[in-house]
Write a protein that binds this DNA or RNA. Structure first.
Length: 963
RNA sequence: GUGGGGGUAGUCAAGCUUGGCCAACGGCGCAGGACUUAGGAUCCUGUCCUUAGUGGUUCGGGAGUUCAAAUCUCUCCCCCCGCACCA
C-alpha cells in the first residue's frame, strides 16, 4: 500500500528529474509543442488555476507516450503595474497584505527580501514554478523558463515591434485614456487592480455644443447630438458658480469640474473668471446647427459634475427637459424670480423631430406619462431617459424638420450631424467617465488626451482576412470558438500598444518614453521559449540578441557568417538555434482560460500571421473554463471560503488530496468547456477511487500466479483493446474527460468483472495491467509509476510508448453483456413477482430464429428491410418455413423492430453460441442470483417447458422460467 | 445595446456536429444487502411510473419536419459570460 502520497510524488518527481525526462531537445522524432497561456504574476494562485495547467501537462504526457518529442515550456507574465502595486503594499507593511503572504507560506526571511517590484516578481516566479508546476509533476522543460521582464525577453519584444513596424502595422493617433492625475494611465476594470473606486465606470463620448452669446460661449455637453433640431432653450443651474475659461481665443462657460477635465483633453484652456448660474438665466444664445436664438432657463437637474454642467434643452425627446420646461411655464414665480419675459417663455415650444416606434410626436412626454412621473427631480427620470435614448437609437428616424438629415435613421444621423457641427466649429468632442473613479493613490482619475499614441492596427483588413483564413485551418476547441473567432477578429480595432508611467515592461523601441503594454507583449512569445534556453544558460547575452540575430534565427534572413560577426555569436550556435526554431515551430497547441477568447488569442493569432511565414503559424488552440467558487446557502456565489478549504494554498491542497487526485479531478469532473464549482468532497471521492485502484492492483499483483487461461480472457483483452481505441480517438480532440472515464471507471469496472467472473490468467492480468497502468500515466503519473514499478514492468511508464492495440472483438464482448442482461432480467422478475424459485431455467434461442435475424440483417445492410421482403425470404428457406405461423410472426416482429433502430450491435450475437456460452456460465449466474440455474436449448425437440416459455426465446434474449 | 454560451431525471454532468443500439454514459447523493469494520472503507443491487424480464411518460414551454427527435426547423420563456488597454 502506498503509505504516503507525498513520498511517492517526491520519489517519482526526483526520478523524472534525474533522468532529465522533461528536457526537450531536437531529435528525429515527430515533435509536439504545447504551452498554456502564461499566467500574470498577480500573487498566489488557487486550485482553480491549476485546471488548465494540468490539462497541458496531461496532453503533453499523452503525446510523449504516442511517440512524440514534446516541448512544454512555461513562463510568467509580469508586465504592467501588478508587481509595482504588490511591492508598494508590502513595503508599506499593509496588514492584510502581510497576512496574505504569511498564510500562503511566505517565510519571514523571504518577506524581508521583498523590497521592490522585481524582487516580488522573482519571488512569485519561484512560487509558481516550484510550489505549483513542479509540485504537480509537470514535465516542463525548466531550462526554458522565461518572464516578460527579463532583459533577453525584452530584446525579443523589441524585435517583434520592429517587425510589426516593417509590416506597416504600427500607427499613431490621438487617444483618450483614463489616467490618474498623479500616477498616469490606469486600467478601469471590474478587478480594480489600478484603482480604488469606480471599476464599473464607462467612458462616455459627449458632443460639446457651443451656444454663442455675445463674445461668450455657453458650452453644453450632450450624448444626443442628433437632437439639435429640437433645441428650444438652454439650461443652467442657478445655484452653481460657473467658470469662464479661455479656450484658444474664445471664452467658454462651463462648470468648474468640467474646466479641469477639459484641460486634460484640450490645449489652451485657462480659467479666467467666474459667473453665477443665476446671472445667465434670461440670456439669449444662439443654438448650434439651427442657428436660432434660444432663452436660458433655470433647472436644478444640471449637475456640475456631469458633462459641462450646462445642458441644451430638447423637450421633445428628453424627459428632464420636458418636465423642467413645464415647471418654467407653469410656475409664475420662476418667471418673476429670474426676470424672464413672457415672450421668452412662450418661444420655447417643443418641436417634434424624431419618429419612433411606439411613441407619438413627443417621446419624452409619452414616457413621462406612461411611467407616471409628475415632478422634476423624480428618480424615475433617469430610467425614462435611458429608455427613450435606447428606443430612439434603434427605431428612430429623423423627421422632415431636420433639414438635410430628414429621413435618416438616428444611429446614422448622430454621426453625420456631429461631424458637421465639428467641421463648422460649433461642436467639439469631450470624453468623461459616467461615475467617479479614484486611483489607488487616492487621486481622481479622468480622461486624458494622449497625442501620438501608438497602436497596433488590428483593424487592418488584409491582416484580418489572412488571420481569419488561417484560423479555418486550425484545430480550435471548443468548436464553438472555431466558429466564433472570426467574428472576434473582425471586431478587433486598433489597439493602443504602449503606455506611459512607471510601468514594468519593455521600452518601446521607437520611443523610449513608452513602455509596451501587457497584451501586446504576450502574443508571439511561444517562439521565444525556443531561444530563451540559450539566454538562460548564458550562451548568448541580451546585448547579442539584436535585430539581425532574430531575423536570422527566426526568419532565416541574412548570412550566418555576417550575423555571427555582427553579434559575436558563433556560426555554429546560430545555426543550432535556427534549426531549433525550424524544428519546434509552429506551436501545436496553446491552451488558455476562456478570458483569453476575446483578447489574448486574437492578438496571438494576428501577430503570428503578421510576422511569421505561413508554415510557422499556430496549429491549435484550446480554451478552458473555470473552477468557480462554491455557492453559499442563498445560492449566491461565495468566495472560495476558508471554512470550505478552497482558499488554502495550492501546496496545501496537494498535501491534503494528493496531486494525482487533483489531476484526476480536473481531467474528469466535467468537459473542459464548462465551469465547475469547487467542492472538496468531490475531490475526495477521486482520491478514494485512486485508492481503490491501487488496492486492486496490489491484490491482482500478489494473488494471481496461475498459469493457463480462463473463459473470460478474450473478453478482457477485447475490452481493453476497445478502451484504448476509445482513448486514442478521444485524444485526437484532447478530450481528457473521456480518457479519464475510460481509464479510471470503465477499465476498473472491467477488471472487477473479470475477477468476479472467475478470470484468473496471470498472463491476461499482467497484459491488462500493463495497458491499464500505461493509460493512467498522462493523468495520474505518480501513481502510474508506482504501480508500474510494483508490477515489475520495465523502465518508467512515463517513457513507455503505447503499442498498436488490436481492436476490440464485439463478439467476445457481447457474451458478457448477455450474461449481465440475463442476471439483470432474472433479478427483475424475482423482484417483481416476489418469488423464491426452486430453480431458474433459461431457454436459448432455436437456430432457425438466428437464421431469421441473419436474413433480416442482410436486408438491413442492403437497405431494403420490410415485412413482406423478410417474410418472403424466410418462407423460401425450407427449414424456417417448417415453423409456419411462428416463422411469419417472427419475421413480422423482427422487421418492425429492426427498422426502428440501428442494428450494428446485433451482428455480434450471430457469432455466439448462446447455449454453450450460457451453459458454461450457469454456475456463475447461479452464484450471482442465489438459485439453481439450468440452460436448455429450445432447439432440442422434446424439452421440459411447463409454461411454454421457450417460445419467447429470441437471439440474444433467452427465455426465462422461474419454477 | 452588441457578440457569444447555456437550460438533460435528487444533484453534478455526458449525449446534440453525423436523428434510430436513448429511460438517456458516468460521478455524487440516497436506499437495501454482503462483508464485518474503526476506514472520509470495500463489494454487490436498486434509484421516473408501472410491470414475470413488459409497457407508459420524459431531456426549459409550445409548434413543426420525419417511419423515427434530447438530437433538425420555427417560436416563446429563463439563466450566464465578454465588450478592450485587465491578464
Amino acid at each position: 500500500m502506498v503509505s504516503s502520497y507525498r513520498e511517492m510524488e517526491d520519489k517519482w518527481q526526483r526520478t523524472w528529474s534525474d533522468r532529465k525526462l522533461e528536457n526537450a531537445d531536437r531529435d528525429g522524432r515527430k515533435k509536439f509543442m504545447i504551452i498554456f497561456a502564461y499566467p500574470g504574476v498577480t500573487g498566489y494562485l488557487h486550485v482553480g488555476h491549476m485546471r488548465g495547467f494540468t490539462y497541458s501537462d496531461a496532453i503533453g504526457r499523452y503525446k510523449r507516450m504516442t511517440g512524440h518529442n514534446v516541448l512544454f515550456p512555461v513562463g510568467t507574465h509580469a508586465t504592467g503595474n501588478g508587481a509595482v502595486t504588490l511591492a508598494h503594499r508590502i513595503m508599506k507593511k499593509e496588514e492584510d497584505m502581510i497576512s496574505y503572504l504569511k498564510n500562503n507560506g511566505c517565510t519571514p526571511e523571504k518577506l524581508e527580501g521583498l523590497n521592490g517590484p522585481m524582487a516580488v516578481v522573482e519571488f512569485f516566479n519561484d512560487v509558481y514554478v516550484n510550489d505549483y508546476w513542479k509540485r504537480f509533476g509537470f514535465l516542463s522543460d525548466w531550462r526554458r523558463f522565461t518572464c516578460t521582464l527579463y532583459e533577453d525577453y525584452g530584446m525579443f519584444m523589441k524585435w517583434q515591434f520592429r517587425k510589426l513596424n516593417d509590416s506597416g502595422l504600427l500607427i499613431q493617433k490621438p487617444y483618450f485614456a483614463p489616467a490618474c492625475v498623479q500616477c498616469g494611465p490606469v486600467a478601469i476594470d471590474a478587478s480594480e487592480t489600478d484603482i480604488s473606486k469606480g471599476g464599473s465606470a464607462e467612458t462616455q463620448e459627449y458632443t460639446l455644443l457651443k451656444f454663442r452669446c455675445g463674445d461668450l460661449f455657453l458650452v453644453a455637453a450632450t450624448l444626443r447630438p442628433e437632437t439639435v433640431y429640437g433645441q428650444v432653450n438652454f439650461w443652467v443651474n442657478p445655484d452653481v458658480e460657473y467658470v469662464k475659461m479661455k479656450k484658444d481665443n474664445e471664452t467658454w462657460i462651463v462648470s468648474p469640474p468640467a474646466a479641469k477635465k477639459l484641460a486634460y483633453q484640450k490645449d489652451g484652456c485657462e480659467v479666467v473668471g467666474t459667473i453665477s448660474g443665476k446671472e445667465m438665466v434670461g440670456w439669449m444664445c444662439e443654438a448650434p446647427m439651427i442657428h436660432r436664438s434660444v432663452p436660458v432657463f433655470p433647472a436644478k437637474f444640471c449637475d456640475p459634475n456631469v458633462g459641462t454642467g450646462l445642458v441644451t434643452s430638447v423637450p421633445s425627446d428628453a424627459p428632464d427637459d420636458w418636465i423642467s420646461l413645464q415647471d418654467v411655464k407653469n410656475d409664475p414665480l420662476i418667471m418673476k424670480e429670474y426676470g424672464l419675459t413672457k415672450e421668452q417663455i412662450d418661444s420655447a415650444v417643443p418641436i417634434s423631430i424624431i419618429s419612433m416606434d411606439g411613441y407619438g410626436d413627443f417621446p419624452a412626454k409619452d414616457i413621462i406619462e406612461s411611467m407616471g412621473i409628475e415632478r422634476s427631480g423624480d428618480p424615475k427620470l433617469e430610467e425614462a431617459k435611458k429608455q427613450v435614448y435606447k428606443d430612439g437609437y434603434h427605431t428612430g428616424r429623423m423627421k422632415d424638420v431636420c433639414g438635410k438629415f430628414a429621413g435618416l435613421r438616428v444611429e446614422d444621423a448622430k454621426d453625420k450631424m456631429r461631424a458637421e457641427m465639428i467641421g463648422s466649429g460649433e461642436a467639439e468632442l469631450f470624453y468623461d467617465l459616467n461615475e467617479e473613479v479614484i486611483c489607488r493613490c487616492g487621486n481622481p482619475v479622468m480622461i486624458k488626451r494622449v497625442d501620438d499614441q501608438w497602436f497596433i492596427n488590428y483593424a487592418d483588413e488584409e491582416l484580418t482576412k489572412r488571420t481569419s483564413d488561417h484560423c479555418r485551418t486550425m484545430d480550435i476547441n471548443p468548436p464553438e470558438y472555431q466558429n466564433n473567432v472570426h467574428t472576434v477578429l473582425e471586431w478587433f480595432r486598433e489597439r493602443a500598444c504602449v503606455r506611459q508611467g512607471s510601468w514594468l515592461g519593455t521600452k518601446f523601441p521607437f520611443d523610449e518614453r513608452w513602455t509596451i503594454e501587457a497584451i501586446s507583449d504576450s502574443t508571439l512569445y511561444p517562439i521565444y521559449y525556443i531561444i530563451s534556453m540559450y539566454a538562460n544558460s548564458k550562451q548568448i547575452s541580451a546585448e547579442q540578441m539584436t535585430e539581425p540575430f532574430f531575423d536570422h534565427v527566426i526568419l532565416g534572413k541574412g548570412d550566418v557568417g555576417t550575423v555571427s560577426k555582427e553579434t559575436g555569436i558563433s556560426a555554429e550556435l546560430l545555426t543550432k538555434i535556427k534549426d531549433d526554431v525550424q524544428y519546434w515551430y509552429p506551436l501545436d497547441l496553446n491552451l488558455g482560460g476562456k478570458e483569453h477568447m476575446t483578447v489574448h488569442f486574437p492578438t496571438f493569432l494576428f501577430n503570428h500571421v503578421a510576422i511569421l511565414p505561413p508554415e510557422k503559424l499556430p496549429k491549435g488552440i484550446m480554451v478552458n473554463w473555470y473552477i468557480t467558487k462554491k455557492k453559499d446557502e442563498t445560492g449566491k456565489k461565495d468566495k472560495i471560503s476558508k471554512s470550505k478549504g478552497g482558499a488554502q494554498p495550492i501546496p496545501g491542497a496537494a498535501e491534503k488530496f494528493g496531486v494525482d487526485s487533483l489531476r484526476l479531478y480536473y481531467a474528469h469532473i466535467a468537459s473542459l468547456f464548462v465551469d465547475v464549482e469547487w467542492d472538496e468532497d468531490i475531490v475526495m471521492t477521486y482520491r478514494q477511487r485512486l485508492d481503490r485502484i491501487i488496492t486492486m492492483t496490489e491484490e491482482l499483483n500478489s494473488i494471481f500466479e496461475m498459469e493457463g487461461t480462463s473463459d473470460v480472457d478474450g473478453w478482457l483483452y477485447s475490452r481493453y483493446g476497445t478502451h484504448m481505441e476509445n482513448i486514442h480517438e478521444a485524444m485526437k480532440r484532447f478530450d481528457l474527460r473521456t480518457m479519464a472515464a475510460e481509464v479510471y471507471f470503465e477499465m476498473f469496472n472491467d477488471m472487477k468483472w473479470y475477477v468476479r467472473r472467475g478470470g484468473c490468467s496471470s498472463l491476461a492480468i499482467r497484459d491488462a495491467l500493463r495497458t491499464w497502468i500505461s493509460a493512467m500515466a498522462p493523468i495520474t503519473p505518480h501513481i502510474a509509476e508506482e504501480l508500474w514499478e510494483m508490477c515489475g514492468f520495465e523502465g518508467l511508464v512515463s517513457e513507455y510508448e503505447y503499442p498498436e492495440v488490436p481492436p476490440g472483438d464485439t463478439g467476445a464482448e457481447f457474451g458478457e453483456t448477455l450474461i449481465r442482461d440475463v442476471i439483470s432480467d432474472i433479478s427483475q422478475i424475482i423482484k417483481v413477482t416476489g418469488m423464491s424459485p426452486k430453480r431458474v431455467i433459461l431457454y436459448t434461442t432455436p437456430q432457425w430464429k438466428v437464421k431469421v435475424m441473419s436474413i433480416a440483417l442482410d436486408l438491413v445492410s442492403e437497405n431494403r428491410l420490410d415485412i413482406p421482403s423478410l417474410t418472403k425470404m424466410c418462407m423460401s428457406d425450407p427449414e424456417i418455413k417448417g415453423y409456419g405461423k411462428a416463422a411469419s410472426e417472427l419475421a413480422k416482429k423482427m422487421a418492425t423492430d429492426m427498422s426502428r433502430t440501428s442494428n450494428e450491435g446485433r451482428r455480434a450475437l450471430l457469432k455466439l453460441n448462446e447455449f454453450e456460452h450460457l451453459s458454461a456460465a450457469a454456475q456463475f449466474i447461479a452464484s450471482e442470483i442465489g438459485y439453481k440455474v439450468e440452460v436448455i436449448s429450445a432447439n432440442a425437440g422434446d424439452i421440459y417447458d411447463p409454461q411454454g416459455k421457450s417460445k419467447a426465446a429470441l437471439p440474444g434474449r433467452p427465455a426465462i422460467y422461474l419454477e
